[in-house]
Simulated scan of single mutants.
Amino acid sequence: MKITRILTHPGGAHKDEFLACCVLAAIHGCEIQRCEPEQADLDDESTAVVDVGGEHDPERSNFDHHQFPRDHEPICALSLVLMDLGIYEDARNFCDWLETAERFDVTGPISTAKWLGMEREALARLVSPIDITLLRRFAKTSSLGAGEPLYEVMRWVGEDILEFVQSLKKRLEFVAANAVIWEVGELKVLFMPRTDPMPEEASAGLGRYLESIGMDKEVAGMVYPDRRGSGYGLSRFNDDPRLDFNRIETEEDVHFAHARGFVAKTSASAEGRLRELLALAEVG
């Protein structure tokens, strides 16, 4: 069904309906209206009714969660839209922020802070002025359409969410088909070889891949193609202290080593030499 209008509630704006509208705007490019729905809106399959209306009926393009019982698993309007698109599970796996956003919207800041294991005040300190401004400006509108600055920002946000979720799944499949685990001394290191064609971000998805195969607690470092040259980047994984790349900064084929020792760049491309550099960087 082609959506020709997105409708969400007026008044204060929250992250869940804002992001849900972003995703829908990215797909359909239609007007967003902020008003209370009438029955005709709920019955109109071409109108996506988001976070209001008391119905979750994706066949009629209705995406509200407020009618769910108190003990229902926390899901928000964005969750329902992602479910309808068939990418919710991937989004939950790849977007670390999503479950927090769901809980914040459904259970509030105090409960969410407790779930995160932090004080309520600490959670407040993580709020970005970007969030504040976008939600405040969205709350002040009654309608938004293509070409308006806020609408185009929302469309960018939606496009990036969709692209991240959809491309990361493909990226993980690519990594699984090409990456190998090296054993260097006492360490395990993930090696991503140079391929043709090369992904735009050669190191993207490597950490997620290690999590997916249950090796994120075992691997100490990663080696991956340097997108700025023909060599490789070497980095700690999860800031593992067993690797210090300051130890190789004087090697002729190492052209960069960060002062804090967590990453280095080398022109070397031969497997033997890369293993040698890792051995030299190992903290005994």
Rank of each mutant, 00 (worst) to 15 (best):
R5K: 13
G231R: 02
E201D: 15
E159D: 11
R247H: 04
D51P: 01
D96K: 11
H56M: 09
E271L: 10
A122R: 06
I248V: 15
P58R: 02
Y88M: 03
G229L: 04
A270G: 11
L150T: 09
T141R: 15
A25Y: 13
D57K: 09
M192E: 11
K217T: 13
E186S: 14
R70T: 11
R136H: 10
L187V: 05
S142C: 08
P109A: 14
G221K: 09
T133H: 13
V81C: 05
E89N: 08
E119N: 08
D216T: 10
D239C: 07
H255V: 03
P69H: 06
D244P: 02
G145H: 09
R136T: 15
L150W: 05
L134M: 14
D84P: 02
D226K: 05
G108A: 09
T8E: 05
M215K: 14
I213F: 00
D16W: 00
G229W: 01
G29I: 10
F174M: 05
L85R: 00
V49F: 04
V127D: 14
V106A: 06
D226F: 04
Q67S: 07
L280F: 11
L80Q: 05
S167D: 15
A257D: 04
I87S: 07
D90T: 05
E282G: 05
L85H: 01
D43Y: 01
V189M: 00
C76G: 14
G12F: 12
S230H: 10
G12A: 15
A124C: 03
E276K: 12
P129W: 08
Y209T: 08
A176G: 11
E183V: 09
L126T: 14
D105Y: 02
Y209I: 05
V219F: 07
I32A: 03
R242F: 12
A139R: 07
E55Y: 12
K265C: 07
V184T: 06
M154T: 07
D44I: 04
A264F: 07
F245M: 08
S269H: 11
Q67E: 01
E38R: 14
P10F: 01
D105T: 00
N246R: 15
T4M: 03
W182S: 00
G53T: 03
H66W: 02
G117T: 02
E102P: 08
Y151D: 00
E55W: 10
M154Y: 08
D105M: 00
E121I: 02
K217G: 10
Y88S: 01
T195G: 09
A25W: 12
R155P: 02
